[in-house]
């Protein structure tokens, strides 16, 4: 049996050690000296240096700023150690807890709705027979993803406006659902803001979310469908017994991966929030922004809010990692 050219002598030796270790169930001890190993892989280390410096400068160095969570930091001349006072103030502030609860509610609902809609649209796209129309539809639904949130917010502010330019209110009035003069101020109503927000998110991001599901769908063995059809299965039965089960692992993966990011909610809320809906719309990131750029900011307090958010996000990542290991057999970090 010939050995593939890219197997080096070293890797073959490692394979041998591994197989030996597997059989004996003992700890691998690499006896090659460290200096020799570094020299051997010097080009890899050299290639890694820019990445390492980048990580150090832009990811780890800024973390030293975490210490300011324990300071009162109003400006360069006004930095005082306050211990845990910022956290005490944080937990006593009702606006913080409102933001925290809103973050969880809005993020989880958005995640479930966006994923659900992406699955539904993927299934519908998968059933399309006309390839040209399918590609055209895909392109159309991907486009909103590339629109900035500022533009999206402006467009929907117009669409949901109470004035004559407001498409939704005009339609509701035309259909007799609303009387003239009783138009709904969707984006400034506590009752409707979240609904409007979820719809805008679905419009913007569902198309993009379908990509991963469509990739999975295209990988399903066609023989499964052929066999099912021979056994008399209709289209719905094929979806129910072949497509959805094949997709389920991807759905779980997507949900888990996104669950770890639910604390990162800012731009979409920031461009749509207003004074009327702060109780239902303010999330941790927008709250941090508002206290950081106030007339008399305390960067120590803002850092404490940010640190708390990061801790919660970190815990969520670990939970997701644990769930992922249980369900998929491998973690996400």
């Amino acid at each position: 049996m010939s050995v593939a050219p890219y197997f080096t002598k070293g890797s073959r030796e490692m394979s041998k050690i591994k197989s030996k270790n597997n059989t004996e169930n003992s700890v691998v001890v690499n006896k090659t000296p460290l200096k020799l190993r570094i020299y051997k892989y010097r080009w890899f280390y050299l290639m890694f240096i820019p990445v390492f410096i980048f990580l150090l400068v832009f990811n780890y160095l800024p973390m030293t700023g975490i210490r300011y969570a324990f300071y009162s930091y109003r400006n360069a001349f006004n930095i005082k150690w306050v211990g845990l006072a910022n956290f005490e103030r944080l937990f006593e502030t009702s606006a913080f807890w409102t933001s925290f609860v809103n973050t969880l509610v809005i993020s989880v609902t958005k995640l479930v709705l966006n994923t659900g809609m992406a699955v539904v649209i993927s299934l519908l796209l998968n059933e399309m027979v006309n390839l040209v129309f399918k590609k055209f539809t895909q392109t159309i639904i991907y486009l909103p993803h590339f629109m900035s949130w500022v533009v999206t917010a402006s467009v929907f502010t117009l669409i949901l406006s109470t004035s004559e330019s407001g498409l939704v209110n005009s339609m509701l009035v035309s259909l007799g659902i609303l009387a003239e003069g009783e138009e709904i101020y969707f984006l400034a109503s506590k009752e409707y803001w979240r609904v409007a927000y979820y719809i805008i998110n679905i419009w913007k991001d569902t198309g993009w979310g379908t990509i991963i599901f469509l990739a999975t769908l295209s990988g399903i063995n066609p023989e499964l469908y052929e066999a099912a059809k021979i056994d008399g299965a209709g289209r719905w039965s094929c979806i129910k017994y072949i497509t959805i089960p094949s997709l389920s692992n991807t759905i779980i993966t997507v949900l888990i991966l996104n669950l770890a990011k639910i604390m990162n909610l800012f731009e979409s809320v920031f461009v749509l929030i207003n004074d009327n809906v702060i109780d239902v719309a303010q999330v941790l990131q927008t709250y941090t922004y508002s206290i950081t750029f106030a007339a008399a900011p305390d960067y120590g307090f803002s850092t404490a809010v940010g640190l708390f958010r990061s801790l919660v996000a970190c815990i969520l990542v670990l939970i997701c990692n644990f769930i992922s290991k249980k369900i998929r057999g491998r973690g996400i970090v």
Binding site: A95, Y185, S189, N274, N276, I278, S290, P297
Partner: peptide, 23 residues
């Protein structure tokens, strides 16, 4: 004392007036 609390108080005032008038 004002530096510590003023921005939060002002935000709440704006929010409450807005909610009274329109909500």
């Amino acid at each position: 004392v004002m530096e510590q609390y003023q921005s939060g108080i002002m935000s709440l005032r704006i929010q409450l007036v807005s909610e009274c008038v329109t909500n």
